[in-house]
């Protein structure tokens, strides 16, 4: 497959390739070598994956569980200014609104789960998260 920038992508790309091979079996001809046919699919799916990744600006995002990123950019005082701004903005939110936002956007709970936990309706949870997101975007 060649090299990709992130080893975590390999499983996703491999899965895409295997599904593609399965879907396009009818285009393989037994009188032709298998390798060029497979390599065409591999190159296509790898490029497709990278195109989607960069179009979603995946290279500009990071995982909250990425400890090395946290260490270098969040807890390192020289790089931490922008993140402190976010923390400050989060702290300025009402407790309930902050808790809703943290549960749905950071911890990954569904709107229904947050609604059950906070005794709110699902639509109220969504509205609250949306408003918080808009408020936080203003500091960016």
């Amino acid at each position: 497959m060649g090299r990709v920038a992130n080893v975590d992508w390999v499983d996703d790309i491999t899965q895409d390739i295997l599904i593609s091979v399965h879907k396009s079996l009818h285009t393989f001809s037994s009188d032709r070598p298998f390798r060029p046919w497979l390599m065409s699919i591999i190159t296509f799916r790898k490029t497709d994956f990278l195109r989607k990744h960069y179009s979603r600006r995946g290279n500009m995002q990071t995982d909250l569980d990425d400890l090395s990123f946290q260490k270098n950019h969040v807890t390192n005082p020289t790089h931490a200014g922008e993140f402190k701004d976010i923390e400050k903005a989060m702290n300025a939110l009402p407790d309930k609104q902050r808790k809703v936002f943290e549960m749905i956007k950071i911890k990954g709970y569904s709107a229904q789960e947050v609604a059950n936990e906070m005794n709110m309706s699902v639509s109220a949870v969504k509205v609250s998260a949306h408003r918080t997101m808009k408020k936080l975007k203003k500091i960016g």
Partner: peptide, 8 residues
Amino acid sequence: MCVPDMRG
């Protein structure tokens, strides 16, 4: 081009 490797 309907075939991935264009049959060479």
